[in-house]
Structure formats: structure tokens, C-alpha cells
């Protein structure tokens, strides 16, 4: 009698806690959550980035009159820090952390005929906004592979247009372009779980990582991908530094 009773009580308690964790989401995890930090560097001389001739659109060329635009394939900061690298967890995520969706709503802006940011990392199903700050018409045209479950679309944004709100259904690296300004090229990097993007010094912090052992992947549009094993203690932080070779 008492054995069965105990078992039933323990089971319901476990189930209740699990349900609570599911409902409350991040709040319950926050206490034990850690982070993964590090820097991404480019080894060697940074490749030369070609300048962009925006002469076809007077608005764009005027916006870049003093600061000529250039390609953003490699953006290298002081000390060789590599910007626009997306870092995310490819192995080791379990339980609620793996199925949570980030709740922030990042903005992908079209400013001075360039994409800001050049690379936007997103969680699956995370909403994001596409805005325009320009006095010229853009069309925002992401090119996912429809076989993955992400569907391509193409919307215009004339001057003063309202933001476009979207999300992606599946993990994928999605190029995005403006057909009117062919130099405009950016990326939506859709991943599952916590992620971070390296800043102008190549530094990054992946927050909201529950304790455990993980494989962290660093993705760069031209330099490729690298992986590292990282262990995060409860409330602590793991560290992973990546170095890409300049091609």
C-alpha cells in the first residue's frame, strides 16, 4: 500500500514540476542557466572588400557620398575579430531548452541601401521585423529552399512603408536580396535553440544555456563552419574561441 502510494505521489510531483517548467518556460530555468562566451578571429590578412558602385540610384550614392559602401563578406575588427559569425548549439540540447522559442523580435533594417545587420540570426518560429529607413523603394526577397519548409516571398517597401513581420519554420541559412539594388545581399540564419552573433570585435555570448555538454557551431558566410565541444556548469559559463583562416 505505502509503496504504491509513495510512487504515485512522487510521480505526480515530478509531473507537476515538469508541467510547471513547460508553462513557466524560461523563468524556472533561469536560476540554473549558464552561458557560452568567446571570440571569433580571422587568422591572416583580411581579404580586400570591393567597393560598391551605387550610381544607378541617386539616393543610395548620395547616402554614401562621404563613406563609400563596400561588400560585407568579411568584416574584421581590431585584433582580427571577425564580425557576423553566428554561433549556435548543434548537439546536446534537451528538454524545454530545445523546444523554446526566443521571444525577442529583432529588426532587419534597410538603411542607406545596405542591410543592417548584414547577418540576422533567428530561432525557428521567432518573429522578426523588416523595416526601411530609406527614401527609395526596396524589395525584400529571401530565397530559402522551399523543400525545407521555408517558403520564399517577395515584398516591396517603398519610402515610409510599414514594417513587414515574418518568421521561419525550419532551420536554414537563407540568403536575402533586393532585386532593385543588386549589391544588397544579407543572410537570415535560422537555428534551433540559443544562439549569438559575433560583434565588431569578434566577441559573442550565448545566453540561456542550461547546464550540460554541447557542440557549438560557428558559421560564417564565406569562411565556412567550425565546431567545438563545450561544457557548461549550472549558472556558470563555458568558453569556446574560434579561429578561421583567411582564404
Amino acid at each position: 500500500m505505502s509503496k504504491t502510494k509513495n510512487f504515485a505521489v512522487v510521480l505526480s510531483a515530478v509531473v507537476l514540476v515538469c508541467c510547471g517548467a513547460l508553462i513557466l518556460g524560461q523563468k524556472v530555468n533561469a536560476a540554473g542557466e549558464g552561458k557560452i562566451t568567446g571570440t571569433v578571429k580571422l587568422d591572416g590578412t583580411a581579404p580586400h572588400m570591393k567597393g560598391i558602385d551605387m550610381g544607378k540610384d541617386p539616393f543610395c550614392s548620395k547616402a554614401h557620398a562621404t563613406d563609400p559602401g563596400k561588400m560585407e563578406t568579411y568584416v574584421v575588427g581590431s585584433g582580427g575579430g571577425l564580425e557576423n559569425v553566428v554561433l549556435y548549439i548543434t548537439e546536446g540540447l534537451t528538454g524545454p531548452a530545445a523546444s523554446q522559442t526566443a521571444t525577442t523580435e529583432p529588426v532587419f533594417d534597410q538603411k542607406n541601401c545596405m542591410y543592417t545587420p548584414h547577418v540576422l540570426a533567428l530561432d525557428v518560429d521567432q518573429k522578426f521585423k523588416v523595416t526601411t529607413s530609406d527614401q527609395t523603394t526596396h524589395n525584400i526577397h529571401p530565397l530559402p529552399n522551399p523543400m525545407t519548409g521555408n517558403i520564399p516571398w517577395n515584398q516591396s517597401q517603398p519610402p515610409g512603408a510599414a514594417p513587414v513581420e515574418k518568421s521561419w519554420k525550419a532551420p536554414e541559412v537563407i540568403p536575402v536580396q533586393c532585386n532593385i539594388h543588386p549589391w544588397m545581399h544579407g543572410w537570415f540564419v535560422v537555428v534551433k535553440g540559443p544562439y549569438a552573433t559575433s560583434d565588431s570585435n569578434g566577441a559573442y555570448t550565448i545566453n540561456n544555456v542550461p547546464p550540460g555538454s554541447y557542440t557549438v557551431t560557428a558559421w560564417h558566410e564565406a569562411a565556412g563552419t567550425q565546431t567545438q565541444k563545450v561544457t557548461v556548469a549550472a549558472g556558470g559559463s563555458g568558453s569556446a574561441n574560434f579561429t578561421f583562416k583567411a582564404k
Binding site: 524589395n139 525584400i140 516571398w153 517577395n154 515584398q155 516591396s156 517597401q157 513587414v164 532585386n179 532593385i180
Partner: peptide, 13 residues
């Protein structure tokens, strides 16, 4: 819009 081509949708604008 004509999906698959550069012609975008102007429905919002």
C-alpha cells in the same frame, strides 16, 4: 507579386 521572380507584392503599400 510573381513568386520566383524579382516582381514583389505591393499589397501592403
Amino acid at each position: 507579386g510573381l513568386d520566383g521572380t524579382p516582381m514583389p507584392s505591393f499589397a501592403d503599400n
